[in-house]
């Protein structure tokens, strides 16, 4: 039981950190640019496909991952220049529609190039084993690598936002865009950078997940919805909020799925408990979100405007 708890907690953290990588871009894009981007999940999916394509080309997953990053970045920059830039002074409704259309296009484009069948990639030998973590409990190396890489990226992001000049401009832009622009910052360049960087982070998350889940055209949809839950809970525009909320959502979802039926069994018949557990587990994070919003409508870490 203890082993299972540790195992699932690690899984939950790893899932959470992954959600954070995707949510970071989304919350920054919204916080600074006031743009809601439904195509963000497609960037995650694209990251996985790019990594798969480059892994097949180079024969090495590490090289494939490295090659996918600049392409994901370039795709993000291109999207911003061609489409997103035209949305800054539009209503949220127009933004929703345009990015929805964009998402349909990217999804179908991926199907045209790579087909609808899932593409999987094998882990390199070094990363495919498992290591002992506690007692006789072993944990897959690669999942620890994801955890470490995600934490590293989160730390880097936190440092960038709170300690660098670019981060200062980002924070200033999130609280008063016009003022930053009036003080002489090229706000368009800042937006371009934020969007491209967010797209790259989402692509990185997709590429990292590739050996675990295999790339398929719908993989971005689920993640997009989950990251929405994350940034709504965390407070839209807040990186710290996104981090806390991502871990919370990752843990609640993972632990709920494995321990929900067990907990229910203490108060119900076993059959009814497993039935209830199956129904309730996928809904848990939405219930969590509803509860948090009922108490704090602006999320856990609201950004002062």
């Amino acid at each position: 039981m203890t082993n299972l708890l540790i195992l699932q907690t690690l899984n939950g953290l790893q899932f959470g950190i992954l959600l954070f990588l995707v949510a970071a871009g989304l919350t920054l894009v919204f916080g600074v640019m006031d743009v809601i981007n439904l195509a963000h999940g497609a960037q995650y999916m694209l990251g996985a496909y790019l990594a798969a394509a480059f892994t097949a080309l180079t024969g090495s997953f590490a090289l494939g991952l490295l090659a996918a990053l600049p392409v994901a970045l370039a795709f993000g920059l291109l999207t911003e220049r061609l489409v997103i830039r035209r949305l800054y002074d539009r209503s949220h409704l127009d933004q929703v529609l345009v990015t929805f259309g964009l998402m349909l296009m990217i999804g179908e484009g991926v199907r045209m190039i790579w087909g609808s069948a899932p593409i999987s990639v094998n882990l390199p030998q070094v990363l495919s084993g498992s290591v002992p973590v506690y007692g006789n409990l072993r944990y897959p190396v690669y999942r620890l690598v994801i955890l470490a890489a995600g934490l590293g990226a989160a730390g880097l992001l936190g440092w960038m936002i709170h300690r660098t000049r670019l981060g200062m401009l980002l924070r200033a832009g999130a609280s008063n865009r016009d003022m930053v622009s009036a003080l002489g910052t090229d706000i368009n360049r800042l937006f371009l950078l934020v969007f491209g960087f967010g797209a790259m982070l989402a692509g990185f998350a997709g590429a990292m997940m590739l050996p675990l889940v295999s790339a398929e055209p719908q993989m971005g949809d689920t993640v997009l919805i989950l990251t929405f839950v994350v940034i709504v809970i965390g407070g839209i525009g807040s990186i710290r909020g996104a981090f806390v909320a991502a871990l919370l959502v990752g843990l609640v979802d993972t632990l709920g799925r494995s321990f929900g039926p067990v907990l229910l069994r203490t108060v119900m018949e076993p059959d009814a408990a497993s039935q209830m557990g199956r129904v309730l587990a996928p809904m848990l994070i939405y219930i969590l979100m509803a509860l948090i919003l009922a108490i704090r409508p602006a999320g856990l870490f609201p950004v002062r405007q």
């Binding site: 709504v232 839209i236 996928p282 809904m283 939405y286």
Partner: peptide, 21 residues
């Protein structure tokens, strides 16, 4: 209780909740 983008995302999440149910 919320407005704007929050409302968009929350209704989306409730829709997905119904979907998973």
């Amino acid at each position: 209780r919320t407005r704007g983008v929050h409302f968009i995302m929350i209704t989306l999440a409730f829709g997905q909740m119904a979907y998973y149910f």
